[in-house]
Amino acid sequence: MVDPRTAVAAVVDPEIRVITIDELGILRAVEKDPATGRVTVTITPTYTGCPAMDVIRADIRRALAAAGHADADVRTVYSPAWSTDWISAAGRAKLAAAGIAPPPATPG
């Protein structure tokens, strides 16, 4: 059985296929209830109404099931709102290598 965080972190963004949802900063949390084994994943869309969220939720559930975690809940939260500051350094490098210029991270 693969760690649920590892499985979910590897899910690729369906719109920008060179980056994972973890690298993009969409993935906020992955928790597994030790009593029930149920996995709860929390994600934040890049903007309210993002059309890719249904695909992302389905891809998360598929990745968890393949990793041996069939009992999963995917929650979407809007606060705090997603920010380009949440893109990881690895994500920024992948975007740049693909010719997509990410905005610079806010210092601090």
Rank of each mutant, 00 (worst) to 15 (best):
V30N: 10
P51G: 11
A101V: 02
T44E: 03
L27Y: 06
A9I: 09
V2R: 03
T20F: 03
P103S: 09
V74W: 10
A58V: 01
A101R: 00
P14Q: 08
R75H: 08
A89N: 08
W86D: 13
A90L: 01
V77G: 03
A98P: 00
I16C: 10
E31R: 15
R62H: 15
C50W: 05
A10Y: 07
P103C: 08
T76S: 09
E31A: 14
A10P: 01
R17N: 13
T40F: 06
P104K: 00
P107A: 11
P103I: 02
V77N: 06
K32G: 04
S88L: 00
H69S: 08
Y78K: 02
V77I: 15
T44K: 04
T42S: 12
A52Y: 06
T20W: 01
A7F: 05
I100G: 00
E23H: 11
P80L: 05
P45H: 08
E31C: 08
P102W: 04
T84K: 11
T6P: 02
T106S: 06
T20D: 07
V8R: 01
R28E: 15
V74S: 13
V55Q: 15
E15C: 14
T6L: 13
V8F: 03
G25Q: 11
K94E: 00
A10K: 02
I16F: 15
S79H: 10
S79A: 15
I56H: 07
A98W: 00
V2E: 13
P103T: 05
A66Q: 14
L27A: 13
P34N: 09
A90W: 03
A7V: 01
R38Q: 13
E15F: 09
